[in-house]
Design a protein around this nucleic acid. Structure first.
Length: 272
DNA sequence: GTAAACCTGGCA
DNA sequence: TGCCAGGTTTAC
C-alpha cells in the first residue's frame, strides 16, 4: 500500500487531529511486527503530547513534547486510523491503540505485520541513516545526482529508483508509472540511460508524486488515509497492474516482466 | 544479480 | 490449491 504519497496523505489527514492532543493510554496488542515492538513503548508514549507530525521517506513520525519520537512504517498493509468516538472493540489486526485526551483512539492495523513502530530521535534514528534524498526536494534529487549512478552502477534503472539509499520513498507502483512517463523500460541498465533521461526521470518523479498526493494516494486494494478514506490516484495509473490492457497513449498491449523480483509493467512501443 | 524470508488475505 | 500483493532484509 504505502509509498511516499500514501504516507504523506496519512500524515496530512491526521495532523490537525493529533497535534496538541495528549496520549492518555496505549495498548500494545501484538508486538510481533517486522521487528519486535519495544515493550517499553506504551510507557514512553503515555502522558506525552503530540507536538508535530513529519514524514521521512515512507516513515511517519509523531513528535512528542519530551523524549524520543514515535516512528511508524506501514509495510505492505499497514493503516493508521483516527476513530473520533473511540473504539467499541479492537478490529482484527489492530496491533497498537493510542488513546487520546479527547476520547479518540488512533489504531495501527497491519494484517501482514511487515510494518514497524519504534521510539527514537528523528535526527539520530538508525532507520534513516542510509536513506537517500527526498524526491520532492528539488535541491538534492537532481538529474545530475541520478546521472552520477551511470558510471557507478550497471544495475537496471528500476532497481536504482527502487533503492531507498538512492532516493527515499518510491515503491513499485510509482516507479512503474514514472518509467512509463519517461519512455524508459524498467530493465534498461543505468549506463544506457542518458543524462537527459535522468533529468526527465527526476522531473517526472516530482510531478507524479505530487499528483498522487493531490489525489490522496493510490488505493490498489486496501489503502486508507488517516480518517478511513480511499485514495483516487489508482484511476490515473497508466501501466501499474494493467498487463494485457491497451496503452492509453498508443493502444499497444501492456506487458509484464520481473525486475528484481517485482512485477514491472510497461508499454512495448512507448517505452525503450 | 536472484531467491527466499517475514505474514495474511484475496482471487483464479 | 496455488499464486499474487504497496516493503525490507538476509542469504546463496
Amino acid at each position: 500500500m504505502p509509498e511516499l504519497p500514501e504516507v504523506e496523505v496519512v500524515r496530512s489527514s491526521l495532523e490537525p487531529l493529533l497535534v496538541g492532543r495528549r496520549i492518555t493510554g496505549v495498548q500494545l496488542r501484538c508486538a510481533s511486527l517486522r521487528r519486535p515492538v519495544d515493550p517499553a513503548l506504551p510507557r514512553l508514549l503515555t502522558g506525552r503530547s503530540i507536538t508535530a507530525t513529519r514524514r521521512r521517506s515512507k516513515y511517519l513520525v509523531l513528535d512528542l513534547d519530551q523524549g524520543p519520537s514515535c516512528i511508524l512504517h506501514f509495510g505492505m498493509s499497514g493503516t493508521l486510523i483516527h476513530n473520533p468516538g473511540g473504539l467499541d472493540s479492537p478490529a482484527r489486526h489492530d496491533h497498537l491503540l493510542f488513546e487520546l485526551d479527547d476520547g479518540a483512539v488512533l489504531s495501527f492495523n497491519d494484517p501482514r505485520r511487515f510494518g514497524l513502530v519504534v521510539m527514537d530521535d528523528y535526527d539520530s534514528c538508525s532507520l534513516f541513516a542510509d536513506l537517500g534524498p527526498e524526491p520532492l526536494q528539488a535541491d538534492c534529487f537532481t538529474g545530475a545526482y541520478l546521472a552520477g549512478f551511470k558510471t557507478r552502477s550497471r544495475r537496471t534503472i528500476k532497481d536504482i529508483l527502487m533503492d531507498q539509499r538512492v532516493v527515499a520513498g518510491l515503491g513499485n507502483i510509482y516507479v512503474n508509472e514514472i518509467l512509463f512517463d519517461c519512455g524508459v523500460r524498467p530493465r534498461r541498465r543505468m549506463p544506457r540511460v542518458s543524462r537527459a533521461e535522468c533529468a526527465l526521470l527526476v522531473e517526472s518523479s516530482r510531478r507524479i508524486l505530487t499528483e498522487a498526493i493531490e489525489h490522496r494516494g493510490s488505493t490498489v486494494s486496501d489503502f486508507l488515509d488517516g480518517i478511513g478514506r480511499r485514495g483516487g490516484y489508482q484511476w490515473r495509473h497508466q501501466v501499474y497492474d494493467k498487463v494485457g490492457e491497451p496503452c492509453g497513449h498508443c493502444g499497444s498491449v501492456i506487458k509484464l516482466v520481473r525486475v528484481g523480483g517485482r512485477s514491472s509493467f510497461y508499454c512495448p512501443s512507448c517505452q525503450d
